[in-house]
């Protein structure tokens, strides 16, 4: 800081270079940090407040509840299958489009913006009307939820995998492998997948983070028959608010964990190639 504030020593400097102070910038950044941490302090205080001082009893009770494991398990299950479906579908389709139908790439790019145009509420309104009548009665089942998540999380998978496919020269690699007699399945699994592995991992983490926090589609499509973690947090608040706040804190920590892993993987990526 002091380095910046010092006036220039040499004679040939710009006339404008007067000493700068960073007072309001520091205030602004401190304000952001305060604003982003303030609700976390609220969660911590609310979940540890007791009649006489501090208690961690709510944490013990909340984590002792078998319902917690059941509903977190539901969310993790949905997350796992969503990751599998979205990533396999996106990787394979993008590879195929790169190889055989480059004219499709702008269309795929457009599709990756659709969740902003068709948010969870709107998609839920449409899906619930298709899948609640007899020929395809799927509301209340995890299959419909996973299908909906797979479509909604396409943008995350698309961005991540497109980034890593661009770096690799897919066409040349495929032609080289073909001329050496590899089958298309071999090419996909042994050559293309390793190229996009970092994209697959970061895409998977983003999808997981989304599914663990998703509330609207779960409320619309499954409700109480396949209760997910966010639905559980919301329901818990009406009769055990402290437990619900403990769970909210857990959700923040898990989002943090995913962000940290993402930074870890994206920083490692350049050194690998």
């Amino acid at each position: 800081m002091s380095l910046v504030a010092q006036p220039p020593q040499t004679g040939t400097v710009l006339p404008e270079a007067k000493p700068r102070t960073w007072v309001w910038q520091v205030v602004l950044l401190a304000g952001l940090v305060f604003y982003l941490l303030m609700p976390i302090v609220g969660l911590l205080r609310f979940s540890t407040r007791a009649a006489n001082g501090i208690t961690f009893q709510y944490y013990l009770n909340a984590f002792a509840d078998p319902a917690f494991y059941k509903f977190l398990g539901n969310s993790l299950l949905a997350g796992f299958w969503t990751i599998a479906v979205t990533l396999i579908l996106t990787t394979f389709t993008l590879y195929w489009a790169y190889l055989k139908a480059r004219w499709l790439l702008p269309l795929l790019e457009f599709i990756s913006l659709l969740p902003f145009v068709v948010p969870a509420v709107t998609l839920g309104v449409g899906l619930i009307q298709i899948f609640s009548t007899p020929p395809l009665r799927l509301t209340g089942t995890p299959y419909l939820l996973i299908g909906a998540y797979a479509v909604v999380t396409l943008p995350f998978a698309y961005r991540a995998i497109e980034n890593s496919l661009q770096g690799a020269n897919v066409l040349t690699l495929t032609e080289a492998a073909e001329s050496l007699g590899a089958s298309w399945w071999q090419i996909f699994v042994e050559i293309i997948l390793p190229c996009v592995w970092s994209g697959v991992i970061s895409g998977g983490l983003l999808v997981l983070s989304y599914v663990l926090g998703e509330f609207t589609l779960a409320l619309f499509l499954v409700g109480s028959s396949f209760q997910t973690f966010p639905l559980y947090i919301n329901q818990l608040y009406s009769y055990q608010p402290q437990y619900s706040v403990v769970m909210s804190l857990l959700s923040f920590v898990s989002t943090w964990l995913v962000a940290w892993l993402l930074v870890l993987f994206t920083q490692k990526a350049p050194s690998q190639t």
Binding site: L32, V33, L36, L37, M38, P39, I40, V41, G42, L43, R45, F46, S209, G213, E214, F215, P230, I233, N234, Y237, P241, S244, V245, M247, S248, L249, S251, F252, T255, W256, V258, A259, W260, L262, V263
Partner: peptide
Amino acid sequence: TLASVAANWGGVPLAFAMIATIGNSGW
């Protein structure tokens, strides 16, 4: 890192965190 966590978090837990902060008995 903090900003990317905050931008991605939101939803139900954020609502309860804000109640615990600027609610009637928030800190």
